[in-house]
């Protein structure tokens, strides 16, 4: 499976569980898809396919947006939220905090849709929960 195939299949779907997907393939050495779930335009999911996994990621905020004095508390809260948050986990790439989920490359299109929706809803909820730590 590659990102182009996936983009076509997601676009072909008229929607899933009441959500529409807007797919934008981003060309490059490693293919990346930018997917907007429903009207969550501000928190698009990014998807990439490796040999064994499909990785979906949503950007939350940058380091500089975090209130410095509350940073440790926030990190601790993120760790504690990792398990209750269904299918997604918090991570950090460089100076960006993200939520991500990964699936097997053999996942069905329905599983991928489910992941994208859950990830987006989790990202929205995580932002709401972590609001007190943000400048």
């Amino acid at each position: 499976m590659n990102t182009q195939d996936l983009a076509l299949r997601l676009t072909d779907l008229s929607g899933y569980a009441g959500y529409q997907f807007d797919c934008q393939p981003i060309p490059g050495e490693t293919g990346v898809l930018q997917i907007t779930v429903g009207d969550y335009e501000e928190i698009p999911a990014f998807l990439s396919v490796t040999d064994s996994q499909i990785i979906c990621m949503t950007h939350l905020f940058n380091d500089h947006e975090v209130i410095t004095a509350k940073r440790t508390m926030m990190l601790e809260e993120m760790l504690e939220l990792n398990i209750p948050m269904p299918l997604s986990a918090f991570s950090k790439i460089g100076n960006r905090y993200v939520v991500f989920g990964s699936l097997s490359v053999n996942s069905s299109i329905e599983d991928i849709c489910h992941e994208l929706i859950t990830l987006t809803e989790n990202a929205a909820e995580a932002l709401t929960v972590l609001e007190e730590y943000i400048r």
Binding site: G28, E29, T30, Q34, E42, L60, F61, E65, R135
Partner: peptide, 28 residues
């Protein structure tokens, strides 16, 4: 490789990218 590609894309589209506060306002 995949995360870097995604993160590079965050960076490339950072002009379009909303700050957490903007995103929160929209979500709310």
């Amino acid at each position: 490789k995949a995360s870097n590609a995604i993160a590079d894309n965050f960076a490339a589209s950072s002009s379009k990218m909303h700050s957490a506060r903007d995103s929160l306002a929209r979500i709310k």
